[in-house]
Design a protein around this nucleic acid. Structure first.
Lengths: 151, 151
DNA sequence: ATTATTATCTTAGTGGCTAAGATACTTATT
DNA sequence: AATAAGTATCTTAGCCACTAAGATAATAAT
């Protein structure tokens, strides 16, 4: 029946998620970071600079934990603290893209080329299928997370 | 160009992985577990019973950490320790499927039905595309992880 | 039998996390 | 302008999971 196929893909997507966590953590350790630090550094890279408070609310960590994380990043020259001009209580965290890239690129390089090769093997139509799946699956996961986070 | 599309899907797959981590951790916290505990409990469920040592090498944790983890699981009645018949040094960890399901099912229920609905919306051909992508992507990630773990 | 190996547990020490409070700056009120 | 309230980050104490190393107990090898 169709159900079996659906179940199988569902299980595969689960394994996919799990495997990516594993890789992510392995890369982190290789780079001398914890899994969470790696994750949140990715945040910073994606969003560009942000304040410590923004990072705290985005990560769900307490401000104290964020302070410690920024300390660790700063010690490794991966970010720089800067006081905001218009509000000097605010601490702007500026990722040092060059250093961060230098740290992770060698670790991800092969993975990246392989992933690109994999995707290049799909037709335009097939890529659209993947795209549509990802978009909707992401939405589902985000709404699930949101609902759970409420009381 | 084609490259742009590939890059975009690659970025989406990254976001997909990240979002699934977030959901996974949120579910874990709701269940009163840490993210890692949730992950490794999933291991146990999938593989059925295994020994403490197998769990240690599979997770990469030290045997001490595994002992602590089993203690936490046991306290919550999620697993049971049993000494192996043929080698009484070995500790077999038996997941209590019923209790584990009871803990997680309510948290995953809606997600599960939504995921199934999403997949049911794809044609057989399209599902094959997803399947093939997942299978190959998983392989790439596993080989990346393996290579990094070696030297 | 004795020795080596294997499987798990125990213990001491480390590090990141939370919660609560301290510090420093900004905004609102009078 | 002076004081109070609010906001952003940092600091500190205490907790908990982790590692590393060694202890304990059972099995395998000579």
């Amino acid at each position: 029946m169709e159900d079996d196929i659906v179940q199988q893909v569902r299980r595969m997507s689960q394994l996919y998620a799990y495997t990516s966590i594993q890789m992510h953590e392995t890369v982190a350790r290789k780079a001398g970071l914890s899994g969470t630090d790696h994750k949140y550094l990715g945040f910073l890279m994606q969003k560009g600079q942000m304040t410590a408070g923004e990072l705290a609310s985005l990560t769900g960590l307490t401000t104290g934990a964020v302070t410690g994380m920024i300390d660790r990043f700063e010690k490794k020259k991966l970010v720089k603290r800067k006081f905001s001009e218009d509000d000097r209580r605010k601490v702007i965290i500026e990722p040092n893209t060059k250093n961060i890239m230098a740290l992770f690129e060698p670790l991800y390089k092969e993975f990246r080329t392989q992933s690109e090769a994999l995707l290049a093997g799909f037709s335009k139509k097939e890529i659209k299928v993947l795209e549509s799946y990802f978009a909707k699956a992401i939405e589902i996961m985000q709404s699930t997370t949101k609902k759970l986070e409420q009381p």
